[in-house]
Design a protein around this nucleic acid. Structure first.
Length: 489
DNA sequence: GCATGATCATGC
DNA sequence: GCATGATCATGC
């Protein structure tokens, strides 16, 4: 079909009132690129990329920025989104799914039900294509095409997320919005941080960066995983029973909240977690072991996760809500007799080969800092006995935007040194440059197994290093959360 | 006591 | 075999 078919009198090859018909017609693209079916297809300049071209060339209508869903009569919003292939050959989302731009002025007067997010995106047509770098998007192959409606349990969290975003807008703090603020639905950056992409907000004169509603990458991954198990999509994915079983085993995750009935009236997901954890604050590892009938191994790097899973009653290795929201679960250990954190916090090593090709905003370090954290705080026992280590507190945290800006300085410095082939002068905690820039947040240090080497852009091998969050920065984050609960015997 | 480089336990 | 998260050991 070509552009000339846009005339509304022309008979469309699908019924625009029927989501099923739209989906069936979309499925013609499975295993094909847009250009395979529409040889004259191209990506419109300065537009939303492949999605707009699919709307125009495949579905035969002019892309628009109306608040209505793309297929208004069927209430269906079309989204094209890229996949990447994992080491085990399974597919995962390449990025977050960006939805509509938030107009702070208009959104302020809305409720969740009347919000631009819900109005436009309550029913999605997701067209997943395989991303290949350097390839024109019109030549990328579609691998999975499905519709999506939000299940009740997810919608509860999304509604809390929307309320959180909305509260910042109505509180005149739209400039403080960040992705880590929320769980599934996020306000992601859209456009640059300066000049023309700054937007007005209704209750403050401060301009705020333009942002769009988006679904977290982890949430899109969940949709893909569910697709593997969906009998209706079997014809698309063509996987053997055995393969499906092994994927299910590898990626299975159980929900903390099995039903929305588990919430108390007016309670958010965050508050529910706090309620579940609270009875165990002050308990020792030994006490928790006895309580849950699980022998926790304090030397295991993810003992904190094991403790949380026991408390939440989650049997699988992964906690579904945490996966969906891409939450980093991190352990913080306090000294026995003073509120002090000895160790800085490590992260995966810096991919020297990748960092030189990345911008701050698509870097791994930015993604890490921009996601939500769940800190599980333990306190050492005065006698040093591992089994007497106490669970002190657990809480969600996300890095304030102002601190992200400081972290950007260290990332830029590190990238430059990697580009220059200088692997021995990364900034440590007390480096002059870090102190001058007021960077009391993070530093770079060695990290890895003994003798381990990793490749550099120069073709050499170097000792792996990673970004660390400073121990005293962690302490400042933790401080407001401790000493509030009385000592429990 | 703390900053930094080094190393460990685990799991895939 | 090695990546990861966490902690140890050394020296100032």
């Amino acid at each position: 079909m070509s552009a000339s078919n846009i005339d509304s009198n022309t008979k469309l090859p699908y019924n625009p009132k029927s989501a099923q018909s739209i989906l069936d017609y979309g499925e013609k693209l499975l295993g094909h690129s847009l250009r395979d079916l529409h040889p004259d297809a191209k990506i419109f300049k300065g537009k939303g990329g492949l999605g707009d071209s699919v709307e125009y060339y495949h579905y035969g209508y002019e892309p628009n920025t109306k608040p209505e869903p793309d297929f208004a009569e069927a209430g269906l919003e079309l989204k094209c989104t890229p996949l990447r292939v994992l080491g085990d050959n399974s597919m995962a989302s390449k990025e977050r799914l960006v939805l509509n731009i938030i107009n702070y002025i208009e959104e302020a007067d809305k409720s969740f039900e009347t919000s631009s997010f819900w109005h436009k995106n309550k029913f999605l047509l997701l067209m997943f294509y395989l991303h290949q770098s350097g390839v024109d998007p019109v030549d990328m192959l579609f691998k999975l095409i499905r519709t999506w409606k939000f299940p009740e349990e997810d919608l509860k969290i999304i509604r809390d997320d929307w309320n959180k975003i909305h509260a910042l807008i109505t509180g005149g703090k739209a400039e403080e919005l960040s992705e880590g603020l929320t769980f599934y639905l996020a306000a992601c950056m859209k456009g640059s941080k300066s000049g023309e992409d700054m937007r007005k907000q209704p209750y403050s004169n401060t301009l705020a960066q333009q942002r769009a509603y988006s679904l977290k990458q982890g949430y899109i991954n969940k949709i893909i995983l569910l697709s593997y198990l969906d009998a209706n999509l079997k014809h698309q994915l063509n996987l053997s029973e055995k393969r499906v079983k092994s994927l299910q085993k590898k990626y299975s995750s159980e929900n903390i909240v099995k039903s929305v009935k588990a919430y108390k009236k007016g309670e958010t997901f965050e508050e529910l977690i706090e309620r579940k954890m609270k009875p165990y604050y002050g308990k020792t590892i030994g006490q928790l072991s006895r309580k849950f009938g699980i022998q926790f191994n304090i030397f295991k790097k993810d003992v904190a996760c094991d403790v949380c899973r026991a408390i939440f009653g989650v049997k699988t290795k992964k906690i579904q809500e945490f996966e969906n929201a891409e939450i980093s679960l991190k352990t913080v250990t306090l000294e026995a007799e003073r509120d002090y954190v000895v160790q800085s916090m490590s992260f995966p090593y810096i991919r020297f080969v990748d960092i030189v090709n990345q911008t701050w905003e698509d870097s791994d370090w930015f993604k890490t800092l921009n996601s939500k954290f769940f800190f599980v705080v333990f306190r050492k026992s005065p006698d040093g006995k591992a089994n007497k280590t106490k669970l002190e507190k657990a809480f969600f945290w996300n890095m304030p935007l102002s601190d992200l800006t400081i972290a950007e300085f260290l990332w830029n410095d590190t990238k430059k040194k990697v580009q220059d082939g200088d692997f021995s002068h990364f900034l440590t905690k007390t480096s002059k440059e870090n102190i001058e820039k007021g960077n009391n947040i993070c530093h770079v240090r060695p990290h890895g197994t003994k003798g381990q080497k990793v490749p550099t852009p120069q073709g050499t091998n170097e000792q792996p290093k990673c970004f660390w969050l400073n121990n005293d920065y962690i302490l400042e984050i933790v401080k407001p959360h401790i000493n509030k609960n009385e000592e429990t015997k």
